[in-house]
Design a protein around this nucleic acid. Structure first.
Ligand SMILES: O=c1ccn([C@H]2C[C@H](O)[C@@H](COP(=O)(O)OP(=O)(O)OP(=O)(O)O)O2)c(=O)[nH]1
Ligand SMILES: [Mg+2]
Length: 530
DNA sequence: CACAGCGTCCC
DNA sequence: GGGACG
DNA sequence: TGTG
């Protein structure tokens, strides 16, 4: 988990007084260009997500164009904008038109193009032309002023109740019923495995302005126990990170894996306006701010955070005084500030040295290797993950207890979070350490001790990333295998999600061998940073 | 509509 | 067995 | 939240 927190406690300024962004309200100081001033358009909402619609309108207006909310055939529109896979007959059906067209009908991607290039592009290639086919439809004329929206547009800035982040929201409804019939054009997008691709991108994140905001969304959703939504955002962030160029259109975003219409809306909103209204809402919610703060306490998750909030607790100091804390949470509260930020990898290296020395002193020839984000080459580390084993296959056994005792004795380990775990043959410790000297922060440290025959799988597991591991294990499942930190097994039989037969262990002495059995190209740690 | 990883410890 | 964690 |  990355944790760079904008630390502000209970006093959240409401009303966005602190924000200094572009106002979208009206054309204050005649925004740079007005390259769309020739436009007087109507946007057919069918098939266009509500959020994208709003952004389109806002942007057109911002650049001098006019957007009509109602369709009125007596008016002189310069263009009718329709979603890309809507055809003329369908448009006419929706607008209840039966006469020949008097308007220029263009796909919405043209509008995106104009906004992207900040100029009025030629719309020839985006124009829809009427087919010269005999119209068999029984004519049904009548009112030429209709409102194709389902609801009144007042909801454009609906009050968004604060609970809408936990239930999937309503603005899902498409503006037409039979739109499923036109959705078959979606690109098939053959299965790609994250674990079979490198996480390295030739360019450094070209979309940081976007991923930063989405990261905040992830944290909010995680703190409200909306884990699948958080995961959806996280995958989108990974995709954006390795995208070689800055996102410049809604379509570009939507075409990427793990980015659907909802995320494309949000991505494009950020690309266009530099901000995300949904995030602003979240930021102005005192409850959400506090839930985020509480879930940053080690040992507290969404449930506990909610509980504390319901009990009227609002600050970390409140927790210290009034909350019923378990051992882990007491440590989490006491060291709250230290745990908020990540350490430079140089510091992780110092910590590694201390543990290595101690381990070597106890059992010569021992292997102590730092994994996690450190091994993946990240410049900062949330904690230090150290794997210990011994090539002779048995000497690791005695080490665990002695090592911890030794490090506590020297004052290096300051607190235990989870100690004396024993899983199969492996042992795991989670605790807190502090390097000697002034101005040192407490740091999280994890140590696992594993038998040598599990070294390969343990190394893969402990090196991660978490996302990479999930992908790898998912791939195993698809191949009737299973992977955990102990072993890779094949011939696993599952009925639904439950395992019927455990399968047999495939020997995997090295990381390379794990990749080999799975038939994917080997990835060095730096390329597993998904 | 199902699925999105899996194993472990704490309480 | 739910919750939290890596 | 996305994908199949
Ligand atoms: O849900 C998880 C969390 C962690 N791990 C594995 C992979 C990960 O790399 C390793 C260490 O976990 P940690 O939380 O320390 O992640 P990190 O990759 O080291 O990042 P950070 O820099 O935040 O510590 O444990 C998983 O397999 N699944
Ligand atoms: Mg780590």
């Amino acid at each position: 988990m990355s944790s760079k927190r904008s630390r502000k406690d209970a006093n959240i300024s409401e009303g966005g007084s602190s924000s200094k962004r572009i106002q979208l309200e009206e054309d204050n100081k005649v925004s740079e260009d007005s390259f769309l001033s020739a436009l007087n358009i109507f946007i057919l909402p069918a098939g266009i997500q509500k959020a994208r619609l709003t952004v389109l309108k806002t942007q057109v207006i911002r650049y001098g164009g006019r957007v009509q909310d109602m369709f009125d055939s007596t008016q002189n529109f310069s263009h009718i904008i329709v979603e890309d896979n809507i055809d003329i007959p369908r448009m006419k059906r929706i607008l209840k038109l039966d006469s020949a067209l008097e308007f220029t009908v263009v796909k919405s991607s043209w509008l995106s193009l104009c906004l992207r290039n900040k100029k009025l592009e030629n719309c020839e290639n985006y124009q829809l032309h009427e087919e010269k086919k005999v119209n068999l439809n029984s004519p049904k004329k009548e009112d030429n002023v209709i409102n194709p929206y389902n609801k009144s547009r007042e909801n454009a800035s609906d009050p968004v109740n604060s609970s809408d982040y936990e239930s999937s929201d309503e603005n899902e409804q498409n503006n037409e019923k039979d739109m499923t019939s036109t959705l078959h054009l979606k690109s098939p997008q053959t299965e790609k495995w994250i674990c079979a691709q490198s996480s390295k991108s030739p360019k450094p994140n070209m979309n940081k302005h976007i991923t930063d905001k989405l990261e905040e969304m992830v944290k909010t959703y995680e703190s409200t126990n909306d884990r699948w939504r958080a995961l959806g955002y996280q995958k989108a962030i990974q995709t954006l990170r390795r995208h070689p160029k800055e996102i410049s259109s809604w379509e570009e975003a939507k075409s990427l894996p793990s980015i659907g219409a909802r995320l494309a809306d949000k991505i494009w909103e950020i690309a266009q306006s530099g901000e995300l209204r949904k995030l602003k809402e979240f930021e102005s919610s005192e409850e959400l701010q506090i839930l985020k703060m509480f879930t940053n306490v080690w040992g507290a998750g969404p449930h506990t955070a909610q509980l504390w909030y319901q009990q009227g607790l609002r600050t970390i100091a409140d927790l210290q005084q009034k909350a019923h804390l378990n051992h882990q949470q007491k440590v989490g509260v006491r060291l709250y500030d230290d745990f908020l930020d990540r350490m430079p990898r140089e510091e992780a290296a110092e910590i590694e040295e201390v543990v290595k020395k101690a381990a070597e002193g106890i059992q010569p020839g021992i292997i102590a290797q730092t994994c996690g984000s450190y091994r993946r080459g990240q410049s900062t580390c949330g904690d230090v993950d150290i794997l210990i084993t011994h090539p002779d296959g048995k000497s690791h056994k005695n080490v665990f207890h002695k090592l911890l005792a030794n490090l506590k004795e020297s004052g290096f380990l300051t607190d235990d979070l989870v100690s004396a775990e024993e899983t199969g043959n492996q042992k795991k410790y989670m605790g807190v350490c502090k390097l000697p000297g002034q101005n040192r922060k407490h740091r999280r440290i994890d140590v696992i001790v594993v038998p040598y025959n599990e070294y390969g799988c343990a190394l893969v597991y402990f090196t991660g990333s978490a996302h990479f591991n999930r992908s790898l294990r998912h791939l195993c499942k698809k191949q009737n295998m299973s992977l955990n930190e102990h072993a890779l097994k094949q011939g696993v039989v599952r009925k639904g999600s439950e395992k019927i037969h455990e399968g047999t262990v495939v020997p995997t002495p090295t990381e390379e061998s794990v990749f080999k059995v799975l038939k994917i190209p080997y990835r060095p740690p730096e390329e597993r940073d998904h």
